[in-house]
Simulated assay, not measured.
Amino acid sequence: MKQLSHIWNTLMHYNAMAIFVYVVQAKSFTKAAKELSLPLSTLSRKITELEKSLETKLLTRTTRSVELTDIGKIYYQHCREGVASFNFANQTLRQHRSTEQGQLHISVPPNLAEPLFLPIVKTFQSRYKQAKVNVSISERLLNFDDDNLDLSFRVAPPENHNHVVVSLLKYRHILIGAPSYLAIKSPIKKPNDLKKHSLIGFGFHNKPELIWRFQNGKKNYEHSFSPNLSINDYMSVLEAAKLGMGLAEAPSILCTEKIDAGDIVKLLPSWHFPEITLFAVHQGSQRLSRLARLFLDLCKDQFQIKRYELTNR
Rank of each mutant, 00 (worst) to 15 (best):
C255H: 02
V237Q: 12
S270Y: 04
D260I: 05
L199Y: 02
Y234Q: 13
K300V: 02
I253H: 13
W271M: 04
N206F: 14
I231A: 10
N206P: 01
F214E: 12
T277Q: 13
E275R: 11
S198L: 10
I200G: 05
A240L: 08
A248H: 09
H205A: 15
A240G: 04
H282N: 08
H205I: 13
H272R: 08
F303V: 02
T256N: 09
L254R: 01
R213W: 09
H223G: 05
F295T: 01
P269T: 06
R213D: 14
K306Y: 04
V281Y: 06
D297W: 00
L199V: 04
P274A: 09
D263P: 00
G284E: 10
S289M: 11
Y308M: 11
M235D: 14
F204Y: 13
S270Q: 14
L268F: 08
H282A: 05
G262F: 05
S270W: 02
L296I: 00
E309V: 02
D297V: 03
S252C: 11
I211F: 06
A280M: 05
I264P: 01
R213F: 11
D263F: 11
M245N: 10
V237R: 14
R293S: 12
H197W: 05
L288R: 09
G244L: 06
S289W: 07
D301H: 12
S230E: 05
R287A: 10
G262D: 03
S198T: 07
A292W: 00
R287L: 15
V281I: 14
P208K: 15
K258P: 00
Q283T: 13
A250G: 05
E209W: 13
I305Y: 13
H197A: 04
N228L: 01
S230F: 05
I264E: 01
Q302A: 06
H197E: 08
I305S: 10
S289A: 12
F202T: 07
Y221L: 13
F204K: 15
E309G: 02
L291Y: 02
W271E: 02
M245V: 00
M245T: 02
S226D: 12
A250F: 02
E222A: 14
L294D: 15
R213H: 13
G246V: 02
Y234F: 15
E275C: 08
P274D: 07
G284K: 12
S270I: 04
M235L: 13
L254M: 03
K300I: 03
R290W: 15
I259R: 06
G246Y: 03
L296H: 00
L298G: 00
P269R: 07
N228K: 03
S285G: 07
P274W: 03
S236L: 14
K207T: 14
P227T: 01
N216H: 12
A248Y: 06
F303T: 00
A280P: 01
Q304N: 15
E222F: 12
F295Q: 02
E239T: 11
F273Q: 14
H282M: 08
Y221S: 12
Q215L: 09
F225W: 10
I253G: 09
H223Y: 15
